[in-house]
């Protein structure tokens, strides 16, 4: 009881990450190199950024599965604009997907609030709607003609080291994106009134309503926030791959939700931390990386991901049960014997 439960979750996760890393290093010494680690943090920055948004939605008691479509639509519109105009500015490219993400998020937020339909249903529908419209208009065409600065930007690193083979490597600029957004999200949750209200709404919606909180504003904010992050992540994804395929991102919803839930967030709402989510993303990244290093078939990825989600969700449900039993036990003890 001394430990807060979420702290416990984080410690468990950290232990699992460490054990898994040791195992993978024994299997393949290449795993525990700075080079591989930096690669991991770079390649998973898309996952990490959207997981922060999913975290906020989950804390508020909602869920969003449409962010992959949001990210795709946002990056595709950006791609069309910069490849047609060839404006040689990364900043401009970066600024295009953000308002698109926020707008699509706002649609989700309004639908969730006004229809009172379960957000899973709403966002599955908008996922299909956004994605369907995009496929219809784009006809699935890929975009890979980008201005030079857009290409150069992807190679930016915070610092550069040399590997033993003489190949330069370092911490990617996109890892920095992830870290900064993580810090912003942490700050928002802990020090902004809206952050505390998100926890409150997720903990007890009716109580929040009775306390006079503006539920619409809170839900709108939450879905706009994941929309915004999906926009940024869409940009990061396009940069990392140097091409935009309309079908590249859709399908990754489960990885992201799994990362957040592994990190201690709950589909029941009210709990979750940035640190936990970071570790959750890291765990999923390591598992995937390990499977690649061990040359396992791509289908195994799906099987293992599915198992991890079931496991994580069962553990958190079990913890909930234990906690309820503990409370009951104390209640009886008070008068018994």
């Amino acid at each position: 009881m001394k430990f807060q439960m979420r702290r416990q979750t984080e410690l468990y996760l950290l232990a699992i990450v460490v054990v898994l890393s040791i195992f993978l290093t024994v299997m393949n010494p290449k795993f525990l190199t700075l080079e591989n680690l930096f690669d991991l943090l770079r390649n998973n920055s898309f996952l990490g950024i959207v997981a922060l948004g999913e975290l906020i939605v989950l804390i508020s008691g909602g869920i969003d599965v449409s962010f992959t479509a949001t990210a795709t639509v946002a990056q595709y519109i950006m791609g069309v604009i910069i490849s047609r105009t060839m404006v040689n500015s990364v900043l401009l490219a970066f600024l295009i997907p953000i308002p698109i993400g926020i707008a699509l998020g706002a649609i989700n937020g309004c639908l969730v609030y006004y229809t009172r339909v379960n957000p899973v249903i709403i966002t599955i529908s908008t996922l299909n709607f956004y994605y369907g419209v995009l496929m219809f208009i784009s006809k699935g065409t890929w975009i890979y003609k980008f201005p030079p600065t857009f290409r150069e930007f992807a190679k930016l690193k915070l610092f550069t080291l040399m590997s033993s083979k003489g190949v330069p490597f370092g911490v990617s600029i996109f890892t920095l994106f992830w870290v900064i957004l993580g810090i912003i999200t942490f700050f928002l949750l802990k020090y902004l009134p809206i952050g505390r209200k998100i926890y409150a709404v997720g903990g007890n919606l009716e109580a929040a309503r009775r306390a006079g909180f503006n539920i619409f504003r809170i839900q709108l904010f939450v879905y706009c926030y994941i929309g915004l992050l999906a926009g940024v992540a869409g940009f990061v994804h396009a940069e990392l791959n140097q091409m935009i395929q309309p079908n590249a991102i859709v399908g990754m919803e489960l990885d992201v939700i799994a990362a957040a839930i592994l990190g201690g967030a709950s589909v029941f709402g009210g709990v979750g931390t940035v640190g936990g989510t970071f570790l959750g993303v890291l765990l999923i990244a390591i598992v995937k990386n390990g499977l690649i290093l061990m040359k396992a078939s791509a289908y195994w990825h799906e099987v293992i991901m599915g198992s991890i989600i079931v496991l994580a969700a069962s553990i958190s449900a079990y913890q909930r049960k234990l906690q309820i039993r503990r409370e009951k036990g104390r209640f009886v003890e008070e008068q018994l014997f």
Partner: peptide, 28 residues
């Protein structure tokens, strides 16, 4: 009857939750 508390927040935060309505302009 159902108390309408926020079960996931601390005792202190529940007691002082009126600050979120009035009192905190920008930061907690």
């Amino acid at each position: 009857q159902d108390l309408s508390l926020f079960p996931n927040l601390s005792v202190a935060e529940n007691i002082a939750s009126h600050f979120y309505l009035e009192g905190f302009r920008s930061f907690v």
